[in-house]
Write a protein that binds this DNA or RNA. Structure first.
Lengths: 170, 170
DNA sequence: TGCCTCATGTAACCAGTTACATGATTAC
DNA sequence: GTAATCATGTAACTGGTTACATGAGGCA
């Protein structure tokens, strides 16, 4: 049920249509919780049905501008403070590493060095993103920076690990 | 389509029934690619239908002992060397951090320190796992260790990040 | 005899992806 | 006028979870 909370979270700071939210997902949440257009529109209708958001204004082209309700904000706070995040274990990268014994040592080693290269690239992409964002003093900036810092550290760790792992294959 | 490759990978080193594989998932793959019983049995039937595995022997209680076929091994190698791993972005932990602005600073800070504690616990659990396994000189041990090392580094990185992040919230 | 473990399967449901469909408004 | 963008929706499918169902074999 995280998508609904992501939508609620975005609606705290602004009023927005499905179309607006879709773009917000593609920019600010792309690396944290990606969502597709069909998913967003469906979930918004459910949220409106249960009263966690409401249509503030209707614009041209059937545009529906949503606002979060008191109930919605309460639900968001409840999710943040009262519920446990379910840890995300599945890793296709690790699954592949686990079975590298079925290919040659050379192939295994190059698999690992390619992984390292990919992580370096991701790290660079995040650094670029970091410099593109205009950070201000608001809460969103504080927590956005913290989330981005996670990405940077994560990729650095993975790169170092993949390099070390390539060295282990002899 | 990773579940099928996980099953193929496990069948490289042994012949096993669905029941055996279920237990293997719960032990060796629990932290990499968890799977449920219903999923495993369904996928095994599909794999047998497409000839990637076959029934070697049938035992008591309807037990079906599967072996990987030449085709199956080829498919596993193809997956490992020719296809790209799809990177796993969704992180509920990060999503929550992103929206910590809706709760008080105190609540946000304690959320982050609780995260740090959870990561420490996971790290300890992995260390225990590490000492429980009897590592030999085989490929599975080499790559198993590499996967486990990833887990250790990952949790250390997350712990340090969460501690740093708690300090950022003032 | 009766309980535990072994062993497989199915059905309903939820979340997410891809693709298709439709139409209004704006800007050139 | 027409092309790009705004804007919403639906349908089919895939992968995964939870729960239910059933029965055989081993052991005390």
């Amino acid at each position: 049920m995280s998508l609904r909370h992501a939508l609620l979270g975005l609606l705290v700071d602004r009023t927005a249509s499905g179309y607006d939210l879709l773009k917000l997902f593609d920019t600010s949440l792309a690396n944290v919780w990606p969502a597709t257009q069909s998913q967003i529109y469906a979930e918004l209708n459910k949220l409106a049905d249960t009263g966690l958001i409401t249509i503030a204004t209707e614009g041209p082209r059937g545009r529906k501008q949503y606002t979060i309700t008191g109930e919605g904000l309460a639900e968001l706070r409840h999710w943040l403070t009262e519920t446990e995040p379910q840890r995300n274990v599945r890793s296709e990268v690790l699954l592949r590493v686990f079975f590298l014994g079925v290919v040659s040592r050379d192939q295994a080693r190059s698999h690992l060095t390619e992984l390292a290269a990919g992580f370096t690239q991701e790290e660079n992409a995040l650094r670029e993103l970091e410099s593109d964002i205009e950070w201000d003093e608001g809460d969103l900036s504080v927590y956005g920076r913290i989330a981005l810092e996670y990405g940077l550290r994560f990729n650095a760790m993975r790169r170092e690990w993949a390099e070390w792992a390539a060295g282990q294959v002899r």
